[in-house]
């Protein structure tokens, strides 16, 4: 398969997954405020931390009001990580491989893009923001479903899955990170009803609330971390994502499990082992934020290695990577 084609498949999926996750954070935050004591005020700044665009946001918007944050994260084309920008990038990628991917996939990416740009143009999303974010999530699910049911599960499909899983692992870890440091107004709130509501909101943003309840019942911060970070079966959990990332890497290279033939497999395997043998209590005691920060850096290095191994063969032409 041409490297450019593999690269475009990978990024189409990554951008769509990114758009879905942004919709998830925003939607949950909207709901969260309906359940919180009035005095706490709305917390929109953390949303901008999650996507890692705080500086750009403050420069352009100043204050983190609900309208500003939603505009910035959902529709601002100057923000490369907004839902709108993600869909535009996904569409550009998909368009260049239109003849290679199943036509249903292309049509879904195109329809998805048109839906978002239409909403951006109408500018009335604030009237019913939940409807919009639900549509974004469902459109992403439809895309993912089409990749699973319409695409041969060969090399291209594995690149598609890699993009989705790496993006999802990154975003789940960021959701956890932000909650731990920013959603808590003070230490005394830990364990309060207020705290439970926030952890529940966090689980909901990863569609994990019901699954968590079935597994653990009562909401306890260490178990939420265990579930979102280290669960092997929940499909938005970081460990799950990494485990399947490893499967896809080995399916592409045909290297047996437990061995590696390139840096992507090596780094992914190392990171997977680190998580697989991690103990949640130790992780929290050692500092969840530090752990997650280090994890994100290592995950980026897996992504870089995929790029070096499969997409970039030196000398490379000029290329912009987000």
């Amino acid at each position: 398969m041409l490297s450019r084609v593999a690269d475009s498949i990978y990024w189409t999926s990554r951008y769509i997954e990114r758009a879905e996750n942004v919709a998830r954070f925003l939607d949950v935050n909207l709901h969260l405020h309906l359940d919180l004591p009035v005095a706490t005020g709305e917390q929109w700044e953390p949303m901008v931390y999650i996507t890692g665009d705080y500086k750009r946001f403050i420069e352009r918007y100043g204050s983190a009001t609900r309208e500003n944050v939603i505009q910035f994260l959902a529709f601002d084309l100057e923000n490369p990580n907004s839902i709108h920008s993600c869909l535009r990038a996904a569409r550009d990628n998909a368009r260049s491989i239109r003849e290679i991917i199943p036509s249903e996939m292309w049509e879904q990416v195109n329809t998805f893009y048109l839906m978002v740009s239409d909403a951006a143009r109408r500018g009335d999303v604030m009237d019913a923001p939940h409807d919009f974010f639900t549509r974004v999530k469902m459109a992403s699910h439809l895309y993912t479903g089409l990749t699973v049911t319409c695409m041969p599960h060969s090399e291209g499909w594995h690149f598609c899955r890699l993009g989705r899983l790496i993006e999802r692992a990154d975003k789940t870890s960021r959701i956890l990170d932000v909650k731990y440091f920013l959603l808590l107004p003070s230490v005394t709130d830990v364990g309060s009803t207020f705290d439970a509501i926030q952890w529940a909101a966090l689980l909901r943003s990863a569609s994990a609330y019901e699954a968590y309840r079935k597994r653990y019942g009562r909401i306890a911060p260490d178990r939420v971390v265990q579930f979102l970070l280290l669960d092997r079966e929940f499909p938005r959990a970081v460990l799950y994502c990494l485990d399947r990332t490893q499967d896809s890497l080995h399916a592409i290279s045909q290297t047996p499990e437990g061995a590696f033939t390139n840096a992507a497999e090596q780094r992914c395997g190392q990171l997977l082992a680190e998580l697989a043998y991690a103990d949640v209590v130790q992780v929290i005691r050692g500092g969840l934020h530090e752990f997650l920060d280090a994890f994100q850096a290592k995950l980026n290095r897996v992504g870089d290695a995929i790029f070096d191994t499969y997409f970039a063969h030196w000398p490379m032409p000029n290329r912009a990577v987000s």
Binding site: M1, L2, R4, F311, P315, P317
Partner: peptide, 19 residues
Amino acid sequence: LVEGRDLLVDNGYVVMRTT
């Protein structure tokens, strides 16, 4: 179907970058 950036000259031959 290739674009210019998929091709390069390597060791005296034209090659395409594949996975």
